[in-house]
Design a binder for these strands. Sequence first.
DNA 1: TGTCGTACTTCATCTGTCGTAGTAATTTAA
DNA 2: TTAAATTACTACGACAGATGAAGTACGACA
Lengths: 111, 111
Amino acid sequence: MISSDVIRGYNDTIILYLLLDHPSYGYEISKKIKEMSDEKYIIKETTLYSAFNRLQKNGYVESFYQEQSHGKRRTYYRITESGVNYYYEKCQEWEVTKEVINQFIKEVNFK
Amino acid sequence: MISSDVIRGYNDTIILYLLLDHPSYGYEISKKIKEMSDEKYIIKETTLYSAFNRLQKNGYVESFYQEQSHGKRRTYYRITESGVNYYYEKCQEWEVTKEVINQFIKEVNFK
DNA sequence: TGTCGTACTTCATCTGTCGTAGTAATTTAA
DNA sequence: TTAAATTACTACGACAGATGAAGTACGACA
């Protein structure tokens, strides 16, 4: 598993990535994260929904409701232009961060 | 610069790395981090010393005093066996974390 | 004499994560 | 047919780690 302190700075980025192509909603995003990380990272519901609120407050996503077949509604999120910019900034930051942390890591190869 | 939320999970690891060879103390460690990261990461004093406390509480380092020339004392930290083990665990975790986050990052190459 | 560098400590605040719990509808299994 | 699991959230409170602000104290240098 992955320590949440590491992922902390990248939850927002991960979510934005999954919104790049098309709007999505909480449950779908969480399943996608689990799947794409090969079950190595499973985001907590509370973490996810509080991230949505933060992203919205910062103007990186917009929300809208979509009624399902039988009157059930889902909250969908759509990435904004500013969200896309923020995402790409974070990607660049990530490359730098990786290099920095790598300086202090010894690669051990054993299973 | 680097966001502190990313580094959050690795401050302890970075410090332990710098103690692997020989004991050291706060100021030296902070200069080393700055230098090795090419000024891209400058650890805050409060972050550093609270990390020392945590590391000591967890048994990953031991502290001792060393008197300087004129009665000034420095607090030195020495990594323990358990600290070494923890460090290598974190190194392995880092490899996994890198892979996971990379799944959600688009590499953009522009300057 | 005053500022800079070294070497810390204390305290209070903030942010993001997480545990617990609850709601409510739909789908699947016994 | 009924119970359990899955879907799709919301609210609340606790906690850990990072940080800002401030202070202490010594030596070197100008």
